[in-house]
């Protein structure tokens, strides 16, 4: 029922062969990269430059060995874009008009979503939480974030197991039943899942407190996240590329 591949970025385990330069960057640098690219997308007006930015992001995905994984998620977005253009074409009867209205918007969103997914597929969630802690984000947020990220795949598996248990007991729920008999879902799925999550949260709290965890104290970590030379080099490279794009955008007036 629940495809665990949907939640694959939350597993945070990489094989030796798939670790690239992008995986090794400090998560704070990558977060800055995502924010920077999003802002750059908002400023750039030229469609050609937006297209170049799309190519740059695709190149980064190839270099970081994430193109196949990210591609699956981008397919949903591309399908959405195609549908929007098709519907506008049906309404207006003018394909050029539909494309003129949607292409700049979709190019921008493609870049934003791709860079976000690039970050997600190259950063272990625990490192993200550690980086936020280094950025002085309160422990209450980082601790909760760690738990949420860690338990998303677990709860998805639990939901799948509950669904299978229902099937074993002879309750067959079709997609139509979700609408027709919501009580089935409520009694059979939601209540057991909530009770399970209450139990799990109690166990986590007891385990954390028994290991000396305290919300007000600073936490230490076995594997600290640190800035290195490669991070500074990447920051300089991105600043240089962004400046080039902004200068080109200001000086070139051609559009798609």
């Amino acid at each position: 029922m629940i495809n665990s591949e949907i939640f694959s970025p939350f597993k945070g385990e990489f094989d030796e062969g798939e670790i690239s330069f992008f995986h090794k960057l400090d998560p704070r640098v990558k977060m800055g990269f995502v924010v920077g690219i999003t802002l750059l997308c908002a400023f750039i007006q030229s469609n050609i430059l937006l297209g170049l930015l799309v190519l740059l992001v695709i190149m980064m995905m190839i270099l970081s060995n994430t193109l196949t994984k990210v591609g699956k998620f981008l397919l949903i977005f591309i399908l959405f874009c195609a549908l929007a253009i098709f519907l506008t074409f049906i309404i207006t009867g003018n394909l050029l008009y539909a494309m003129k209205h949607f292409i700049p918007f979709f190019l921008r969103f493609f870049v934003m979503i791709s860079t976000g997914l690039l970050f997600a597929f190259t950063t272990p969630p625990q490192k993200l939480a550690q980086s936020l802690e280094k950025m002085k984000v309160p422990t209450s947020v980082t601790f909760t974030l760690s738990i949420a990220i860690r338990y998303i795949p677990t709860l998805a598996r639990e939901a799948s197991a509950i669904f299978k248990a229902l099937k074993l007991r002879g309750v067959k729920i079709s997609t139509w039943d979700f609408i027709k008999k919501p009580g089935y879902i409520y009694r059979g799925m939601i209540i057991p899942l909530i009770i399970r999550s209450i139990k799990l949260s109690d166990e986590i709290a007891i385990a954390a407190e028994s290991r000396g965890f305290c919300i007000s104290n600073d936490r230490s970590s076995l594997n600290e996240v640190e800035f290195g030379m490669k991070d500074y080099r990447f920051i300089l490279l991105i600043i240089f590329i962004s400046s080039c794009f902004l200068i080109l955008d200001a000086s070139i007036s051609f559009k798609f």
């Binding site: 949907i6 959405f80 974030l145 338990y151 709860l155 998805a156 899942l193 909530i194 954390a208």
Partner: peptide, 29 residues
């Protein structure tokens, strides 16, 4: 907020995320 509160908020978020993903993915397609 106690550790128990935060742990439960974390579990709520995990559950919420699953529900959100399934419904939004279904509609996006």
């Amino acid at each position: 907020f106690t550790t128990r509160d935060l742990a439960f908020i974390g579990m709520t978020l995990a559950l919420m995320y699953i529900v959100q993903t399934i419904t939004i993915l279904g509609v996006s397609a």
